[in-house]
Design a protein around this nucleic acid. Structure first.
Lengths: 210, 210
DNA sequence: CAATATTGGAGATCAGCACTATCCAATGTC
DNA sequence: GACATTGGATAGTGCTGATCTCCAATATTG
């Protein structure tokens, strides 16, 4: 089915018509091709766009303004993966408040140890420092050693992802990569939860008396 | 300062008095010791509790009902880390909707490959399958190979965390461990974003003509 | 000890977000 | 030509998280 009306689009995407209208109004879904004053045709690209919007909100947990920013990236072919990912990530990590100089220094030290090249101003740095402050404030300060282990794991998946981008999507545009990267974030978190459940089960089992 | 009034508590935590009152009403903050009909004293434990609430909402991104569940765990010494973490994680991964049998099978295969022991019903399994469905629906299906790499990374940090719990907190109660685990989730995500920014910078630099 | 300011409890109110419902005129269909 | 459908505009809903307003009881100060 290449061409459809709004109600078909809604049916195809499993969303209420009212919601499709809402996304149109918000500029998240491009308008269909008008066939008259009160009718418009939509096609497969609109179905896919709706799937993307729902994936970004439901799976990646983005709010609609962040979705709008991601879609703007996706629609702009002129950006490289690197540029697109940068804009998107920077927007996602942005947040209010400031961090202690100590936590910032710990982050900077980590970045230096790793030899990471980051752009300034870098919202990840601030967000991470705030997380470390929160941990420290609860008597749960993260050691450099712990951060290194976490960074090892993070770097392993990040390099894997970027290598995949270099292989597949260098020319094809940034969309695939950005979308994949965003949706894999919750995957990593979920896998950590599962792995932790398993490890914790082993621990409590191993220590059980009988 | 061991004993204070509500306005001092608000000042000490950096929150408006109205917000402190709100948390009291919501049962997130235990009531102070009443010294009369209209006065109550609060202490350090209340300051720390407020820090915990804000860390869970701002850093870990939990909603107040999830915070309430975590606090209930924290206040209940009778649970092991394993039990507490299970309840909390299961609540966090809970979500609406269902997943395709294909995605569920892929998750089950992964779990089987890893030899992970998970409890049923397991919300992580469903949530992960839904994420995989979303990826597949956007022509970005995750291969078993990719999942294995992600699981490697997830398992590495999970085992590190659980080992730390076994070392420090076996007796001390589950609070530390649960809180640390929750707050380290965003840390891992942020580190992945930073590592990706670095890897992507290297890639685009390495491929630049001059 | 009286005057004044502060405290904290209860309820109402508000703001932001993501939708959802109602109108309505134009249009397509039978 | 009667009738239902479409889709644009506008207003309203439900939820969450927080803030405002009142007020009587209480502490502090002169």
């Amino acid at each position: 089915m290449l061409s459809m009306w709004m109600s078909d689009l809604a049916a195809a995407s499993g969303l209420p018509v009212a919601t499709v209208k809402f996304y149109l109004r918000e500029g998240l879904l491009p308008p269909g091709e008008a066939t008259g004053a009160t009718r418009a045709r939509y096609d497969d690209s609109h179905v896919k766009r709706l799937r993307l919007i729902r994936a970004l909100t439901e799976v990646a947990g983005l709010r609609l303004d962040a979705v709008r920013a991601v879609l703007a990236m996706v629609d702009d072919d002129s950006r490289s993966f690197h540029q697109a990912m940068g804009s998107v990530h920077h927007r996602l990590s942005a947040g209010r408040g400031d961090a202690s100089p100590m936590a910032l220094a710990q982050v900077d030290a980590l970045v230096a140890r790793r030899g990471w090249q980051l752009y300034e101003p870098n919202p990840h740095r601030l967000a991470l420092a705030r997380a470390l402050d929160a941990l420290a404030g609860l008597d749960h300060a993260a050691s450099d050693d712990l951060l290194d282990d976490y960074a090892d794991a993070a770097q392993a998946v990040a390099e894997r992802d970027v290598a995949a981008v270099g292989r597949e999507d260098r020319v094809a545009g940034a969309e695939h990569a950005v979308v994949g990267t965003l949706l894999l974030e919750p995957v990593l978190v979920l896998l950590r939860r599962m792995a932790q459940e398993d490890a914790s089960a082993r621990l409590s089992e191993g220590s059980r008396k009988s």
